[in-house]
Amino acid sequence: MSKTLFGMIQALQETISSQEAFLTELDGAIGDADHGINMNRGFEAVITKFTEEDTDIGASLKKLGMTLLSTVGGASGPLYGTAFMRAGAEAQGKETLTLEEAEVMLAAAIKGIQDRGKAVKGEKTMLDAMMPAQDALKQAVAEGLSVVEGLEKACAAANEGIEFTKTIRATKGRASYLGDRSIGHQDPGATSFTLMLETATKYLKA
């Protein structure tokens, strides 16, 4: 099977759709119980806007981000929307990516989320999965690993990041109202990011 950008976006949409209830349940424990619903609504809109004709990674990620901005609704809309748009800005005109380019894109996405949410690492947010994933990618680039090998390292690091979010209290977003009661629950945003990263990795590996 040949790998296409459209195929990957379809895979992402399927993951978000199949994990909708799980993400919403996680959000129900520490937030307003809408993360899965919101993300699913966003990706259902995304999938209608893409075809196999979409091969420019930069333009496509911009379109994907813009769609999330206007369909997700909660804070994850502008956060993921900005992340995809900033990542896309690093991939203009590209139809394939090296691991190094992927690392630069993830770094840009992280910067975008930090600009928006003013969060740092350790506040029980999606950054707690994204930042370790980026560190792992950087190391994989230095070690000269393949794209799939590097992404697998990033997935492992992101999953460790999710585990870490269970041990800390939230200081950003709705979950921060819970204080210490947020401890023990994994962050929904860190989880949705990791699910998307794993989906992209599996798609490329298959």
């Binding site: 919101n38 609504r41 901005l69 206007s70 369909t71 609704g73 909660g74 809309g77 502008p78 929307g81």
Partner: peptide, 13 residues
């Protein structure tokens, strides 16, 4: 709100 009428905020709007 959102263009589909649901609760939320829309950066494009």
């Amino acid at each position: 709100g959102m263009t589909d009428g649901s609760i939320g905020t829309d950066a494009i709007r």
